[in-house]
Nucleic acid binder design. Structure first.
Lengths: 364, 364
DNA sequence: CTGTTAGCGCCTTCAG
DNA sequence: CTGAAGGCGCTAACAG
């Protein structure tokens, strides 16, 4: 299998390599006739330029790197859809690295990306203490970087985030207005920016309702799985007065559901529940889950646009290019005030987006 | 920001470029002393070899390409986890391309990958008629290729699949044994290998129960979304005798749930439901969904292993390296025989994996 | 043990 | 309008 490169084409056409190259790159000073000849043969032989040679020569890889904590997660997979959408239109390739919320893996990925392998990087932080230092490498090498959702502070870098504080505030207030007296907050242990913001929003909403730190019930667990479910169960046993849960991430909504079921606590009568989530399935649970839903796809697009602008202009995507998008609070049966109706599932069929029950909360 | 390359290191160390290169590559014939000196400076300056130059020279990119239909899909995202797991251990990078079940996009991705950008390709077919021809390009260029789950026939290429026929057969029989008289099959329109196999399994199970083609109720819709829900509703209205649904893909299970709810058909009393699915959430629905669950993570690992073996040996991963893994049929409330109990949710808390109710079906 | 040389495939001056 | 020549950064022969 002999390779199809410029030399091969040139020989078959009795032209020089340079001419063939220019013809294919649609250079000014090549006759239409030879352009056509060259292109015809190139197409026929399925010529594709060697990407590494081209990258080496032009010092541009037409590739971006994406570093995300997880991929089995509706939020991040939607973000990736948005990124891929823009990248494809820009004729860019997408390298993907998963950190599983492990700072070591994140650092390793960043190290690999700091070598000129990619023209830009999109990253959602694993939340390690060493994160900022490691990520700074990219900035120092002049590789455009945009952070999304889970960001690191103290870097002059564009961040695509959502209004976590306001949304968490609204979600907590929503529970209180639905009649909850004691609202617990379940979040992830660690240094994630989004969790810190959501916790702030939770506390602020409590304060506004005249509930001080002593009234707050906060539980930080580690990731999804049975441990967090057990932790929530323990919390509910310890604090039988808890009648509302605000979960900071999707996986904790699931654990909360399961914990309530095991303890025989009925949602929304005994306990009301709301959570950040982008899953299309959680609104189908019984009762349907009220959610704060982030504009994940658009976040991916926005982040990608920032990085491509930086690549095009040759200037880094600085903090002044940051963008904060609005999340949507969708009210469903899991936070319904008052006693549960006869049929618990009648909220289900209203679609997520244009739901009559969907109310976008204004900033507090 | 001047680049840190071999030349820069060589100048600072008063060595030749070649020596530095060999020192860093741990070549035999370099003194320990200079190796140490070189490495120390390299580490200090954060030297990382230019990947494109290296790829060009060694004709190896340390990158694999993955082409998948979707990423917002628990099956494919788990497969990707498996692939990434192996790739990281092999110090390989992962390029990802989404086809959204569009043959054009698949062909475009394959074209891009056929240029030597990657050392191997993992692909799950979009199911286009032009698919096999387009994919054959890779084989002809000598780029190792492994197909997984949704495969193309007629290629001498390793395929990682599951026992779709047997699982579909078992799922259908499961419905019949639970008391269903008229089992409908909902599947995706198109040429997907897995759907064809699952349909075959469905028909075979019907036949064994003495039900001929006239008794089959088959509905092929296009992808997720409201259209398929409407189609299922229409089917249920047209055929009020349908008392069981076997959904070939996860999204159709959701649509079926919603259709039943809108029509007031109670699961599992009026209609029993089973579906292929890897979602951790569907078992939490009310009633909990019975599923055929594929070993997605292991499929990703197996596919990646095949491609790396091919890369290492320089020989293509031929059809004789194919592997068929077993799926698991997990019985839950949505296929419970007899009338529904007082509390509908008591199956929920048994985890998916080591569930008492989980029965792995033998081949028929 | 180290240096010199050549070339991977492509693009881009500079000549003609 | 086309050809010749050099070099992107790295590795692998071949010398010394």
């Amino acid at each position: 299998m002999k390779p199809v490169n410029l030399k091969a084409l040139a020989q078959q056409l009795n032209l020089s390599i340079a001419t063939v190259s220019r013809a294919l790159n649609d250079s000014y000073d090549i006759s239409q006739a030879t352009k056509a000849r060259v292109r015809q043969l190139a197409a026929q032989l399925h010529y594709v330029p060697n990407p590494h040679a081209r990258s080496l020569r032009r010092n541009r890889s037409n590739t971006i790197g994406v570093v995300v904590p997880e991929i089995t997660n509706s939020f991040f997979s939607l973000v990736l859809n948005g990124i891929e959408d823009v990248a494809r239109q820009q004729h860019y390739h997408v390298l993907i690295y998963l950190t599983h919320d492990d700072g070591q893996r994140e650092a390793a990925a960043v190290e690999l990306l700091a070598s000129g392998r990619v023209d830009g990087v999109l990253l959602s932080a694993a939340g390690a203490a060493t994160g900022p230092a490691s990520v700074r490498q990219l900035v120092e090498r002049g590789i455009p970087l945009v952070l999304f959702d889970r960001v690191y502070a103290g870097l002059d870098v564009a961040c695509i985030t959502t209004d976590d504080y306001a949304s968490a505030h609204a979600a907590t207030r929503h529970l209180l207005q639905a009649g909850c007296r004691t609202v617990a907050h379940c979040t992830l242990a660690g240094q994630l920016s989004v969790c810190a913001e959501r916790q702030r929003g939770y506390r602020a909403a409590l304060l506004e309702a005249g509930l001080g730190p002593a009234q707050a019930v906060e539980l930080a667990t580690s990731g999804p799985g049975p441990e967090s479910q057990a932790a929530i169960e323990a919390m509910l046993r310890r604090r039988p007065d808890v009648d509302g849960i605000f979960a900071a991430v999707e996986s904790l909504a699931l654990s909360s559901y399961q914990a309530c079921q095991r303890l025989g606590r009925v949602i929304p009568t005994d306990i009301k529940l709301i959570s950040f989530s982008n899953s299309p399935v959680l609104p189908l649970l019984t009762p349907a889950l009220s959610t704060v839903t982030q504009p994940a796809f658009r976040m991916g697009q926005a982040a990608a646009e920032r990085v491509f602008r930086a690549i095009a202009t040759g200037r880094p995507a600085r903090a002044d290019q940051s963008l904060e998008l609005r999340s949507e609070l969708v009210d469903r049966a899991s936070t319904r005030p008052g006693p549960p109706p006869g049929r618990v599932n009648d909220y289900v069929n209203k679609p997520l987006t244009n739901s009559v029950n969907s109310l976008v909360m204004a900033r507090p």
